[in-house]
């Protein structure tokens, strides 16, 4: 008789993935994206966001775990109106590695 409730999955042990998002640059975009992950208890290990050269767009880098829900997560992110594209990179992508020295 217990209703099915999604429990936060243990994410340690999964490989990491770097997602590269191109988004419209306006206040509110980050909250749309972060909400999706938070609601599903999908841990985001790292976030990096800067405007692109023409300033009307931003690029967001997300470091996440590759658990079995990632596919669905990416589909949900792609549904956001302000998200123009999502690309997937392996954990070896240097964007977060080069920042690590600021987090010790």
């Amino acid at each position: 008789m217990i209703e099915q409730v999604a429990e936060p999955l243990q994410q340690q042990g999964f490989a990491k993935v770097v997602l590269e998002l191109e988004v419209n640059n306006h206040p509110g975009v980050m909250s749309h994206i972060c909400n999706l992950f938070a609601r599903r208890a999908f841990n985001v290990e790292g976030i990096l966001c800067m405007p692109m050269s023409d300033a009307s767009r931003s690029r967001i880098w997300l470091l996440v775990f590759e658990d079995q829900r990632l596919e669905q997560m990416v589909l949900q992110v792609e549904k956001l109106v302000d998200v123009l594209s999502v690309r997937r990179h392996g954990a070896e992508h240097e964007v977060f590695e080069r920042l690590e020295k600021y987090f010790h």
Binding site: P27, G28, S31, H32, N35, R39, L80, V81, D82
Partner: peptide, 14 residues
């Protein structure tokens, strides 16, 4: 209300 309706709208604008 913009922040509040982020998860319940298809999209929203301020």
């Amino acid at each position: 209300i913009y922040g509040m309706t982020v998860p319940i709208t298809k999209h929203n604008f301020l």
